[in-house]
Amino acid sequence: MLGDTSSGTTTAPSPRRRGDYGVDGDFETVSPRGQLVVVGAIVAALAALTAVLATVADAPAFAVIPGILAVALVLGVTSYIHTTRVGKFVVWSRVLGDLQLRGDEEVLDLGCGRGALLTMVAELLPNGRAVGIDLWHADQTGNSPEATLRNAALEGVADRVEVRTGDVTRLPFDDDSFDLVISNLVLHNIPSAAARQAAIDEAVRVLRPGGRIVIGDLMHTKHYRARLLELGLTDLSRRDLGWHMWWGAPFFPTRLVTGWYRR
Rank of each mutant, 00 (worst) to 15 (best):
M1P: 14
M1Q: 09
L2Y: 07
D4G: 05
T5D: 13
T9A: 13
T10R: 12
A12R: 08
E28P: 00
V37W: 14
I42A: 15
A47L: 14
T50S: 15
L53I: 09
A54P: 09
A59R: 14
L69V: 09
G76E: 04
V77C: 02
T78C: 15
I81H: 03
F89W: 01
V91T: 15
W92N: 09
R94P: 03
R94M: 02
L96W: 03
Q100K: 04
L101M: 02
D104V: 10
E105A: 05
G111I: 02
C112G: 01
G115Y: 02
L117P: 02
L117Q: 08
L118F: 03
T119A: 06
V121W: 06
A122W: 02
A122F: 03
L125Y: 01
P126M: 07
G128H: 10
R129M: 10
W136K: 10
W136N: 12
A138S: 11
D139P: 00
D139H: 06
T141I: 07
T141A: 05
G142C: 05
G142A: 13
S144Y: 02
S144C: 00
P145W: 03
E146D: 11
A152W: 06
G156D: 09
G156N: 10
V157Y: 05
A158H: 08
R160E: 13
T165F: 04
D167I: 01
R170C: 03
L171Q: 10
F173S: 02
D175V: 15
D179Q: 08
D179I: 06
D179L: 11
I182E: 06
N184R: 08
H188N: 11
H188V: 07
A194D: 15
A195D: 15
A195Y: 01
A199M: 04
I200E: 08
D201S: 15
L207M: 13
G210P: 12
G211P: 08
M219F: 10
H223T: 13
Y224G: 00
R225M: 14
R225K: 15
R225Y: 07
R227P: 05
E230F: 00
G232N: 13
S237C: 06
L241M: 13
L241T: 10
G242H: 03
G242A: 04
M245K: 00
M245S: 08
G248C: 04
G248A: 08
T254P: 02
G259P: 04
G259R: 01
